[in-house]
């Protein structure tokens, strides 16, 4: 890297060193190291972070899933639990009494035919839709509030069709993810005192992590489709989520890309991240997920390990058989 940082900003040697320190700390964190370091943004020239608790406040980076409790991972801890979630649109019961568990360090799959309510489930969880009934507990507390509030509590997601900010550069997309995770929207927009160096470093780091090899400065709208998915995933990761919800992340990827995606998921799982995955590619789902929930017409028709699900008569009848027949 030259002296000019991304966004063309000049980076001073001191700033660079500061960035390195932050990155080192973060890297240790992502590796599951036990060093307890303050929040990334806390180390920058006095900008501080949203330290206040409550829904708007961002939990410190040190509580990211990959460093839960600051000492070793606790894979298998229940991070998200959904009970009796229901929602209807007009006369259509889109979800009925859905029950779901997601544990840290695991990839949990949600499968089902088109229109089964998978994306609706995601929208309910991320706050874009308001369910009629049901309780959602996240990290030990009820999950409620605006989408951004939920995002700052550690809920990251991607969309079925990648929804990047097309006119922003790749790097700016990632930075947007980093910074809106660190600060409230209001501060993000209006507080001129906030620096962004740590976020830049973090964004670059995550771009490398997800395997984006392209130019970070091109407008996101000009990327090929596979890269759109990758960058959207990276943007979600920039928010340092503890639960990552991916809506058909592998569709549209070629074999190589799908392969590296699987690798990435494993890596993230190893870091302690909980992943909730909607996917149609059965081989991928079966290979990746520890547990699978099957939805049909808005209801959970099966739940269990891949082997359980594959053996389940109802599932085979409702879904797998059909896709097997098509294949």
């Amino acid at each position: 890297m030259t002296g000019a940082g991304p966004l063309g900003r000049r980076i001073t040697p001191a700033g660079r060193q500061r960035g390195r320190d932050v990155m080192a700390a973060w890297h240790r964190l992502t590796d599951g190291d036990t060093v307890a370091v303050g929040p990334a943004d806390g180390t920058t020239n006095g900008n501080g972070h949203d330290s206040g608790p409550g829904p708007v406040g961002r939990r410190p980076m040190s509580l990211a899933p990959w460093s839960v409790d600051g000492g070793g991972r606790e894979d298998g801890r229940e991070l998200l639990s959904v009970e009796n979630l229901s929602i209807h649109f007009g006369g259509v019961q889109a979800l009925r009494d859905v029950r779901l568990r997601v544990r840290t360090g695991e990839v949990t799959g949600v499968i089902g035919p088109n229109g089964a309510g998978k994306s609706t489930l995601f929208n309910c969880l991320s706050g874009l839709l308001q369910p009629d009934a049901g309780t959602v507990t996240f990290d030990g507390a009820p999950l409620r509030g605006a989408p951004s509030v939920r995002a700052r509590r550690g809920l990251g997601r991607t969309f079925q069709t990648p929804r990047l900010f097309r006119s922003l550069s790749v790097l700016d997309n990632l930075l947007f993810g980093c910074e809106t995770a660190d600060w409230s929207g209001h501060r993000y927009v209006f507080d001129p005192r906030l620096g962004r160096l740590p976020q830049i470093e973090r964004a670059e780091r995550i771009a490398a992590l997800v395997g984006f090899r392209g130019d970070l400065s091109v407008p996101a709208g000009s990327l090929p489709f596979g890269d759109l998915r990758t960058v959207e995933l990276a943007r979600a990761l920039c928010g340092a989520p503890s639960l990552l919800m991916l809506d058909e992340p592998a569709s549209g990827l070629d074999a190589d890309q799908a392969q590296s995606f699987v690798g990435l998921m494993r890596e993230l799982g190893d870091m302690g991240l909980a992943v909730l995955l909607i996917e149609h590619d059965m081989a991928l789902v079966m290979g990746l997920c520890k547990r699978i929930t099957v939805l049909d017409f808005g209801q959970v028709i099966a739940e269990g390990t891949p082997e359980d699900v594959q053996r389940n008569e109802t599932v085979v009848h409702a879904y797998l058989g059909r896709s097997a027949a098509r294949a």
Binding site: F165, R166, F176, G185, L194
Partner: peptide, 22 residues
């Protein structure tokens, strides 16, 4: 960031709302 937010909202209001920039 103000400019980024302006453009992000223009590009995808729902996604930016999801991320706290209304």
């Amino acid at each position: 960031r103000l400019g980024m937010a302006m453009r992000a909202v223009s590009d995808d209001p729902a996604a930016s709302r999801l991320m706290g920039v209304r």
